[in-house]
Design a protein around this nucleic acid. Structure first.
Lengths: 209, 209
DNA sequence: TTCCTAATTTAAGCACTGTTCAGATTTGCC
DNA sequence: GGCAAATCTGAACAGTGCTTAAATTAGGAA
């Protein structure tokens, strides 16, 4: 299924059409937006017939799931990086929130595919709960640092949920024209995002804080 | 264009196909979900040929806009009602938030059409800014009651934006499986919603509070 | 009434979509 | 070499958004 020696000719038409399809989909998404993401266009992009993808993905939804999966991986990484780069202290959760929204702004089409898929599944993907790199773990850890009680599980879950919802809500609307004058008044996009997050107060409000 | 006397036969095939189409679209949306909402299916539902709708709506997008418009009207009304019914005091903004999310939960397909359209326009519709019944006005008024300074325009806008984003984020994710155990632990959906909103603190945090 | 114009509806068609299926091709393995 | 499984193609089906030309209808003017 894959060349075992160096210099091997490619084993079949593509060797790894699965990957080629996901890559083609991502490229199309970035270049033309979510509307252009058709099964046939992806096949075309990978240089293959319209029926070929169906040997690697049960349906369009499954291909979208694969694309979304890579998006969530990127988001996981972006949040982890933001956490590492931000100085410890209260500003750290805000920094996480800003990083989240910036990811959505930088990859609008991908972000849309990610949540379209999540809404269809009525669930965020499991990978977000990975204990090491998962975004939920990153948020939870940061919330604990900032005043959360690590033993108050429910409260911590609640604070994580609240922070995630806040970030998603802002991510979807940050580009809306309604907020242009606020961005101007506050001196740009990032100050605006920080101001909104400060308004919302992502900090945990726990019984025994 | 419309019968002027009582007992008049209908003036043409439909008399008001515009309305009939929007109604058919809403019915289809409720019955089969957003995926089933095709131009042709709507035409079919209104008992008319596939080309007929194009004399009343430039495009599918415009039809969706009309459906979305009615959704926003309903949301305006739901928020105004929630405000009237909730006792004055701090709980009122939370009540607004809960009403917002409940609307989204009660009309998931419609809510999706509303925001799909908004994302395409990169803007929420203008009607939300109606000074009397508009939802923004309702939220802003409630924020002032609860401690906002009516003269601090920017801060008030910021608090409104934060509350709206919070509500939208929660609305889109409240149905996700991730939160099931939180709903159980807190005793149901509404207590969960209230708890999340309390976590987020929708109350205005203003300089001169 | 009759005639004309403008609005409305239809039928047919184009290019596209997701998906399936039968047949061809290639692969790794015995 | 031969075989079964995996992979790819070509053709097809039903459905989509939308356009165009022709038919129908309505309301007003003569």
């Amino acid at each position: 299924m894959r060349e075992s020696e160096s210099g091997g000719r490619r084993p079949y038409h593509h060797g790894d059409l699965h990957r080629a399809l996901v890559d083609a989909a991502r490229a199309l998404l970035e270049a033309e937006g979510p509307g252009a993401l058709s099964m046939r266009a992806v096949a075309r992009g990978a240089g293959v017939s319209p029926a070929a993808p169906y040997h690697h993905f049960k349906d369009k939804d499954e291909l979208m799931g694969a694309v979304a999966h890579e998006g969530w991986l990127m988001l996981d990484a972006a949040l982890a990086r933001a956490r590492d780069e931000a100085p410890a202290g209260r500003g750290r959760i805000t920094a996480l929130g800003v990083a989240y929204v910036c990811f959505a702004i930088d990859h609008p089409a991908l972000y849309r595919v990610m949540y379209d898929h999540a809404r269809d599944q009525e669930s965020l993907p499991d990978q977000l709960h990975e204990p090491e790199q998962g975004a939920f773990a990153t948020v939870r850890r940061t919330l604990v640092e900032v005043g959360g009680d690590p033993d108050a599980r429910i409260e911590l879950e609640l604070a994580t949920a609240a922070a995630w919802c806040a970030a998603h809500g802002l991510a979807e609307m940050a580009g809306f024209k309604q907020f242009d004058h606020l961005k101007d008044a506050l001196g740009g996009e990032k100050p605006f995002l920080r101001a909104v997050f400060d308004q919302m107060g992502l900090f945990p409000r726990m019984s025994g804080r």
